[in-house]
Design a protein around this nucleic acid. Structure first.
Length: 306
RNA sequence: GCCGAGAUAGCUCAGUGGUAGAGCGCGGCCCUGAAAAGGCCGGCGUGGGGGGUCCGAUUCCCUCUCUCGGCA
């Protein structure tokens, strides 16, 4: 039986994945599935550097602008939706091309998520309250008692992960460290190709700085002004640019400073993405050295698909 | 030209007669239902040049250069 092809194109923010992906998709009759935790939101087009509608007409893009920014989103939802789209594409004889930079989302598609233990609002609230009252040391000690393996992996300051681990234990009576062993990723029926796009650090940072400049020229300020009239979900409001511009709107600092902060935070983000991807030895890296066009890069990738 | 202040990490600046720190930046790392989030680790240095005092100078003295104020 012929294996089902799935292709991933990963890389840090601003490296130029989108254009390459479109060019590649056209060559191989693929459709693009975004692998981006922020582009799933509507009304955040400039902010998250979505590809234009015109470009999206050339190649069908999935999971871009499908969620209301007032709603929360997470990996589990993403995985479910992305895999459903994958199946649909296979039935149509199309190749799914995942494109994005959200390392966790990528990893949960390829390597799987442990059996469903969704968030539990009540348990969460209780734990968050305890965190405020008694501090993270208290919660960490609690975790050490119920799941020492998880505690060993989590830093005592990392409140978010401590809470999640406790939540899983309190809800199911099973340790998260135990559950994490049961991951089901993409099976043998798939032929998976994973590419990473990267460039020299300085060029990447220059590109990021320029991209933020362009966002402002395209009307970022108005977009964010419109956006923050609504009560954004705690996931949506994490997009780089919202907090930075809010500070400016509140008169805490100048517009130039807001821009500087955005550039700085985007660079930090890109650096963390690279750390995440670097350890994944399945990724075939394509380094952009010269003035290669997206279609030239796509051709390079295409040749490696053979 | 005169007077004053200063010159220390990529930037802004502390500090000390026994070869130096902080914040930011920068680098590395962790990551399983918030992931553009959250957390951890790392000082990356010809102390402006030259001379002197001293066992020893980044620190004290002299001088030069430069920068910033003020007066001309």
């Amino acid at each position: 039986m012929l294996k089902k092809k799935i292709i991933f194109l990963l890389g840090p923010t601003g490296v130029g994945k989108s254009a390459v992906a479109i060019s590649l998709a056209k060559k191989i009759n693929a459709q693009i599935i975004s692998c981006d935790s922020m582009q799933v939101y509507r009304s955040m087009d400039i902010l998250t550097s979505k590809v234009t509608f015109g470009q999206r007409k050339k190649v069908k893009h999935h999971l871009i602008g499908v969620i209301n920014p007032e709603q929360e989103y997470n990996v589990a939802k993403y995985r479910q939706e992305a895999l459903a789209i994958c199946d649909k594409l296979f039935r149509k004889g199309k190749i799914p091309l995942f494109v994005g930079g959200s390392g966790l989302y990528y990893s949960m598609i390829v390597d799987g998520l442990f059996p469903a233990v969704p968030q539990d609002k009540l348990i969460r609230l209780k734990l968050e309250k305890q965190l405020k009252l008694k501090g993270n040391k208290y919660l960490y000690r609690l975790l050490t008692k119920v799941d020492s393996a998880a505690a060993a992996k989590i830093h005592p300051h990392d409140a978010r992960r401590i809470i999640r681990a406790l939540e899983v234990y309190l809800k199911t009576g099973t340790r998260i460290s135990q559950l994490q062993k049961n991951r089901v990723g993409l099976g043998k029926e798939y032929a998976v190709k994973i590419f990473g796009l990267n460039s020299k650090r300085q060029s990447l940072y220059d590109a990021i700085d320029q991209r933020v400049d362009k966002m402002f020229n395209r009307g970022l300020i108005n977009e964010v002004k419109r956006l923050i009239k609504h009560k954004l979900s705690r996931t949506a409001k994490c997009a780089i640019g919202i907090g930075e511009l809010k500070g400016y709107f509140a008169g805490e600092y100048s517009l130039a400073e807001a821009k500087r902060l955005m550039q700085c935070n985007s660079r930090h983000y890109a650096k963390r993405q690279l750390t995440w991807f670097r350890k994944d030895k399945r990724i075939q890296w394509i380094n952009i050295n010269k003035m290669e066009t997206p279609s030239q890069l796509a051709l390079k990738l295409w040749k490696k698909l053979s």
